[in-house]
Simulated assay, not measured.
Amino acid sequence: MDPYVAQKSTPPSAPSAYGQPPVTGIPLSPPYNYVHNSQPPPPLPHAHAGAPGEWSTGLCDCFSDVSNCCITFWCPCITFGQIAEIIDRGSTSCGASGALYTLIAFVTGCPCIYSCFYRSKMRRQYMLPENPCADCLVHCFCESCALCQEYRELKNRGFDMYLGWHGNVEGQNPAMTMAPAVQGGMSR
């Protein structure tokens, strides 16, 4: 039997026996993902990089990334700003979050009242446990270690912390960074 004849006799809702899309009269664009045993496309690098329910590093593993440990110790507002921009998905900039962190540190002397909320938000996003104790206590007693752990967690999930949210998004979709150019514009 001719494969084209068999394909025409196939109902429009079912794929053909040859893995091709059904004949519907509507043009379909590739890829024709009609194979019954096909796998879904792989997730984005940071979508499921860490296992839910566990941190990728411990709270006191600060020296596994010495450069970030030094930056966090001397200027925690930089690390906090980078973390906040990623967690807020670009709705606040690194500079604005870092400046607010610094302002709260100067006014209250306790920036942990602001940074602990971001740890809680990050834990909810990635389904992480409240380890080793409550978020506010971790930030109150180990602010630098908590910020380093959050930084490492995002980095281990595939984020380039120096690029920020928008840089990471553009890096994943390089073809989507520019709109196509239109020549000539509209005319009558």
Rank of each mutant, 00 (worst) to 15 (best):
residue 165 W to C: 14
residue 101 Y to E: 04
residue 126 Y to R: 15
residue 122 M to R: 09
residue 70 C to P: 00
residue 182 V to P: 01
residue 142 C to G: 02
residue 53 G to R: 02
residue 123 R to F: 00
residue 174 P to I: 11
residue 93 S to H: 13
residue 25 G to S: 03
residue 153 E to V: 09
residue 3 P to F: 14
residue 188 R to S: 03
residue 155 K to D: 01
residue 60 C to W: 13
residue 124 R to D: 14
residue 184 G to L: 02
residue 51 A to V: 04
residue 23 V to K: 11
residue 86 I to G: 02
residue 98 G to V: 03
residue 162 Y to M: 07
residue 122 M to E: 10
residue 3 P to E: 03
residue 74 W to A: 14
residue 91 S to P: 08
residue 103 L to T: 01
residue 37 N to V: 14
residue 174 P to Y: 13
residue 54 E to M: 12
residue 12 P to D: 07
residue 36 H to D: 10
residue 57 T to G: 05
residue 83 I to L: 04
residue 8 K to T: 09
residue 165 W to M: 15
residue 60 C to N: 15
residue 51 A to T: 14
residue 100 L to R: 03
residue 46 H to D: 08
residue 182 V to F: 12
residue 180 P to N: 06
residue 19 G to I: 06
residue 180 P to K: 02
residue 56 S to I: 00
residue 12 P to W: 12
residue 94 C to Q: 14
residue 136 C to W: 00
residue 167 G to C: 10
residue 167 G to T: 00
residue 176 M to C: 06
residue 52 P to Q: 11
residue 141 F to S: 02
residue 106 F to D: 02
residue 104 I to A: 10
residue 66 V to S: 00
residue 115 S to N: 03
residue 178 M to E: 01
residue 55 W to K: 03
residue 2 D to P: 15
residue 156 N to Q: 00
residue 67 S to D: 07
residue 14 A to R: 13
residue 64 S to I: 15
residue 147 L to D: 04
residue 134 A to N: 04
residue 75 C to G: 07
residue 182 V to R: 14
residue 160 D to M: 07
residue 15 P to D: 00
residue 12 P to Y: 01
residue 87 I to A: 11
residue 47 A to D: 06
residue 7 Q to D: 15
residue 44 L to P: 02
residue 77 C to Y: 01
residue 161 M to S: 07
residue 73 F to R: 11
residue 84 A to G: 08
residue 152 R to D: 00
residue 8 K to R: 05
residue 110 C to P: 00
residue 104 I to K: 09
residue 6 A to P: 07
residue 146 A to V: 09
residue 39 Q to Y: 05
residue 143 E to L: 01
residue 177 T to C: 06
residue 30 P to I: 05
residue 4 Y to F: 10
residue 95 G to K: 14
residue 59 L to K: 08
residue 123 R to V: 04
residue 42 P to A: 11
residue 170 E to C: 14
residue 30 P to M: 12
residue 148 C to W: 05
residue 33 N to Y: 00
